[in-house]
Design a protein around this nucleic acid. Structure first.
Length: 467
RNA sequence: GCCCCCAUCGUCUAGCGGCCUAGGACACUGGCCUUUCAAGCCAGAAGCAGGGGUUCGAAUCCCCUUGGGGGCGCCA
């Protein structure tokens, strides 16, 4: 039984889209499950739109997703080069084009000089004279008569009347191959056994099958997976908001959260929805992928992410947090890890993303937090505020037991003085030491902050009253 | 226009002829907990697109309609 080989072949014309990430994921999943190889190929035959920066960004995003490849432009391999532009230079596509022309299964087309869309000559002979005079010349595949069939892992038996398919360009006038041609040459030469790709390629597949047949090559196993849609059921695009992997990384979605959600989108792994992908590798069945377009739901993504944040090891979360802060360029907390882990531990209970975690934990790490407007108007500037805060400073200064129980006793003692309702007292204290009205539990918060910070902050609150 | 794919709660899904008065999850609503809350727990509302068949029996099989999506580029 020969080795299974799958690939992901993005064109470097932008960021990695979540749809692309999902396609890559399914290919990767199967390659890994089967103990085969996963290959990254860059399809940069569109000179106008392809950029090196995009290639870098895509590779970076893929890596962040935890998807690794055995062969690719950056790691090499026995079937390279792995950039189509470099394969053009080696004459790979021309070589097979010539073979097809010789067999009269492809032909040259010369175009009018003024109207570059208008063909003026089709020929099996290389139009040398026109070439010298600078005419545009392409090579097209000649669609034979008959019926083209193939089997799709998801769609089943597919059948196309060749009469509904027109001849298509294989080699553009700039000498570069078109997608439908290059993909066949490369997949064959790279010994790809399974091609999992978006459903938007389904109608192109018969063209590719014809090229395989013309060259006498066996076809790989195809599977066309449904597209990811936006809320209005049109394909997910910028119109629906940001869709790049980089964006979700930026707002604090964990790699494992994104991958879990993307896998969930079309693949049900039993009842459980939250899982570690690597542990579920063995459960992956390509044929089990949902067969209809799926709507991308950012809210569920966040929920999945929050679940992961709450169930992962706390120091692992801290590491992710630090990495994310570096990635975003935000101000980095400076404190010992023991303190940080305590903070993260209580804050993660209420948030779903690293970004939310950053905001919620901010007052634990930094002194320059600002008071929320609502806190100032409804609590800090309330008539009872001064008296409560003075008592609080007095009590907390004397407090030696800073455990959660210890801080709770003091808080309740202050509330029992009936200067204001318990709720108002607690909110006043909460806001004074964090600037926020929504925080982890008040007693935990005070306990973690500790005497120095708490007293200093209470004093500062009094000082800023009436401002 | 031609060709192709698809169709279970708003969304993601379970279901592959009887276990379905259709199960789970997100979101939503209500309640609990409670010092706040975006966390947690409990409960509720919400669906087989429509019409024909096949069958003792259809969400499940077939046909039509409708709806959605894709392709038909010297884009990939």
């Amino acid at each position: 039984m020969s080795e299974v080989r799958l690939r992901f072949a993005p064109s470097p014309t932008g960021h990695l889209h979540v749809g692309g990430a999902r396609t890559a994921l399914f290919n990767w999943l199967y390659a890994r499950k089967m103990g085969g190889k996963f290959i990254l190929r860059i399809e940069d035959t569109d000179l106008q739109r392809s950029t090196k920066e995009s290639e870098k960004a895509i590779i970076e995003s893929l890596r962040w997703c935890g998807i690794d490849w055995d062969e690719g432009p950056d790691v090499g391999g026995s079937y390279g080069p792995y950039r189509q532009s470099e394969r053009v230079l080696k004459g790979i596509y021309d070589h097979y084009a010539r073979i097809l022309i010789e067999k009269q299964m492809a032909y040259y087309t010369v175009y009018d000089k003024t109207d570059r869309k208008k063909p003026i000559l089709n020929t099996y002979e290389y139009p040398e004279e026109y070439a010298q005079q600078g005419y545009d010349i392409t090579v097209s595949f000649k669609v034979p008569e008959g019926i083209t069939r193939f089997y799709d892992l998801l769609k089943g038996d597919m059948e196309f009347q060749n009469s509904t398919i027109e001849d298509f360009v294989m080699i553009k006038s700039d000498g570069f191959p078109t997608y439908n041609y290059a993909v066949v040459i490369d997949d064959y030469l790279m010994r790809i056994t399974h091609v999992f790709r978006g459903e938007d390629h389904l109608s192109n597949t018969p063209k590719q099958i014809m090229v395989y047949n013309a060259l006498g090559w066996n076809t790989p196993q195809f599977m066309h997976i449904p597209l990811i849609l936006g809320f209005d059921r049109t394909p997910l695009s910028k119109r629906h908001g940001a869709t790049s992997v980089e964006h979700f990384r930026g707002i604090g979605i964990l790699s494992r959260g994104l991958m879990n959600y993307l896998a969930l989108l079309g693949w049900s792994v039993g009842e459980e929805e939250i899982f570690n992908l690597r542990e579920k590798l063995g459960n992956f069945e390509p044929g089990g992928i949902s067969n209809k377009g799926v709507v991308f739901d950012p809210e569920k993504l966040e929920w999945v992410n929050g679940k992961h944040m709450r169930m992962m090891e706390i120091d692992e979360l801290w590491k992710e947090f630090v990495g994310w802060v570096q990635f975003t360029g935000k101000k980095m907390p400076e404190c010992d890890e023991g303190y940080a882990v305590k903070v993260i531990g209580v804050c993660r209970e209420k948030v779903n993303t690293l970004s939310q975690l950053y905001d919620l934990s901010y007052p634990f790490f930094f002194d320059d937090y600002v008071f929320e407007d609502k806190f100032v108007s409804e609590y800090l500037n309330a008539p009872y505020a001064g008296e409560v805060l003075k008592k609080a400073i007095e009590f907390f200064t004397q407090l030696s037991d800073w455990s959660i129980e210890g801080t709770e006793k003091v808080c309740r003692a202050i509330a029992d003085m009936k200067i204001a309702s318990k709720n108002k007292v607690f909110q006043l204290l909460r806001g004074s030491v964090t600037g926020k009205l929504v925080t982890p539990g008040l007693f935990e918060t005070l306990s973690i902050l500790g005497k120095d910070r708490v007293v200093r902050r209470l004093e500062r609150s009094i000082a800023s009253m009436g401002c």
